[in-house]
């Protein structure tokens, strides 16, 4: 925050405090005692300390959870980009042998790593199950596509199968979106 804004924020808060004080002193419903007992002082100090302690602990926990979420979401975003590349290839109907196999490998590897990483986080089992389901689907599509013999370096999948596999890839991508949103919204 700029220095100028901080200065005016202080002026505003102090003015507000003085105003509340003046109103409270002149308010007929309140009676302010000029004395404070030891137990009141003790309660106030302990209350303040607990408030600060709980506040700092909560802030630290929220920050730690955010780091975990961001790590997993960053990985899932990379997988999402690779799935998009596969979808683009399937939409074009031309699957260059080496490129297709390479993207499948990177995608499967990333999914497997993310799955392992989820073991260290505190997410609910549904997210892990969702990542496993996407990995299984990607592996199944890889196995089907790369079992077809290439012609001149291009995998020639029949159009019917290509359309079906494209649909399955899109479902996998949607499930990935859902997983990202779920992780982002999850509360611990």
């Amino acid at each position: 925050m700029p220095k100028f804004k901080v200065k005016w924020a202080h002026v505003f808060l102090i003015s507000l405090g003085v105003l509340i004080g003046v109103i409270a002193c002149n308010w007929t419903y309140f009676e302010l005692e000029r004395k404070i007992t030891v137990s009141d002082l003790f309660t106030t100090v302990i209350g303040g300390y607990i408030g600060l302690y709980v506040g700092s602990k909560l802030t630290s926990k929220v920050s730690s959870d955010r780091i975990q979420k961001d790590l997993v979401i960053d990985d899932l975003k990379i997988i999402k980009n690779n799935l998009s590349r596969l979808i683009t290839l399937f939409e074009s109907g031309i699957l260059p042998f080496e490129e297709t196999i390479s993207i499948f490998k990177i995608t499967s590897q990333s999914l497997a790593l993310t799955h392992e990483m989820l073991d260290f986080c505190k997410y609910n089992p549904d997210i892990k199950a969702s990542v496993i389901a996407i990995l299984s689907k990607v592996r199944a599509i890889h196995n089907e596509v790369t079992n077809v013999n290439p012609i001149n370096g291009i995998i020639s999948v029949p159009v019917v199968d290509l359309t079906r596999l494209l649909g399955e890839l899109r479902v996998a991508q949607q499930n990935l979106f859902k997983a990202i949103i779920t992780i982002n919204n999850v509360e611990f």
Partner: peptide, 10 residues
């Protein structure tokens, strides 16, 4: 490797 085709391994 850059990845394996199922047909290669099988």
């Amino acid at each position: 490797t850059y990845g394996f085709a199922t047909s290669f391994l099988s």
